[in-house]
Design a protein around this nucleic acid. Structure first.
Lengths: 157, 157
DNA sequence: ATATAATTAAGGTCAAAGAAAGTCAAACAA
DNA sequence: TTGTTTGACTTTCTTTGACCTTAATTATAT
């Protein structure tokens, strides 16, 4: 039984594809369409279209209200440089790290296979140490891998 | 009378056969079917479908949750299986880890690029914690990545 | 005609309920 | 003793609904 939230996520992503990364929608209309509570739309946006996921949300209430979703398409190297300098601080949660890797895959900066490998390296299970240090190690490993990816590109194989 | 755990094991294996090595199931559904405690499913998975047995498990909680079981390609991955079960213990030095990765690349289990990425993840620089723990974390990250590589081949994305 | 009030039409928030799976230790069986 | 079975409790993720805020429109009073 596939989750409704996933279906809505896919739906929005396909709309974004058609419209070059930017779209405006009506929350109630969409909720009507999927026969769910309007707030479920907010849930989907919050859990799958956050800034970390690479999307920007803007909305307006009242008559003629709307929700605008913009996919943030950044240049690959710019994005990675940003991650290294500010995006990933000295610590990062598993969730955030997963989202960042997922975003890199969706933007085709890395292959699905590479994303899978990276996720395995920074998973909670792989980093089995006291929570206090965990997020620090994760940040440093993730940054190290991103650096490796950037380095590799600059290399003539 | 055969133990229930064995019956469940056989059942799952026959499902895997039918589905080309990959399947998704509902823990409660299965427990219902065999009229046992849900946690017995976990027991079966832990004792008969571990990574050493050649299986990879992935799961998700909450509404629409599932357990996914992927059978790893045993013949093809002899060396990697050996690494997981004995080759890499609970700790490993940076040097040894680098050598193992290098060898995997030479055997064409992974690309040069993947090797480069893996090395960056297990380097001393990436794992910046007290030496006492360092080699343990390195071992667990390396094993996690090797598992990911083995899993990837059995996975239909 | 203009300022104000009421109504309607959105979207936002948050907490509770529901739907899974995970853990762990105690009881039980071989 | 070792491996199995069970159940109470925990954690995670999803869905729903009641209530709140904001904006636009319409009605009313001056």
């Amino acid at each position: 039984m596939a989750r409704l939230s996933d279906i809505i996520e896919e739906f929005i992503k396909s709309l974004l594809q058609e419209s070059e990364g930017q779209l405006e929608l009506q929350r109630n209309e969409l909720a009507d369409y999927f026969e769910c509570a309007p707030s479920q739309i907010n849930y989907v946006l919050a859990t799958r279209f956050s800034i970390n996921h690479g999307y920007y949300i803007e909305s307006r209430r009242g008559g003629g209200g709307y929700i605008r979703i913009v996919r943030l398409d950044v240049d690959k190297n710019d994005y990675m440089r940003y991650l290294l300098s500010e995006g990933i601080g000295s610590k990062i949660s598993e969730q955030n790290a997963m989202q960042i890797i997922q975003r890199m895959a969706e933007q085709n900066y890395i292959s699905e296979m590479t994303a899978f490998l990276m996720k395995s390296a920074i998973s909670d299970k792989a980093i089995a140490i006291p929570a206090a240090l965990k997020d620090n190690i994760r940040a440093s490993i993730l940054k190290s891998m991103i650096t490796a990816i950037m380095t590799w590109e600059g290399k003539k194989v």
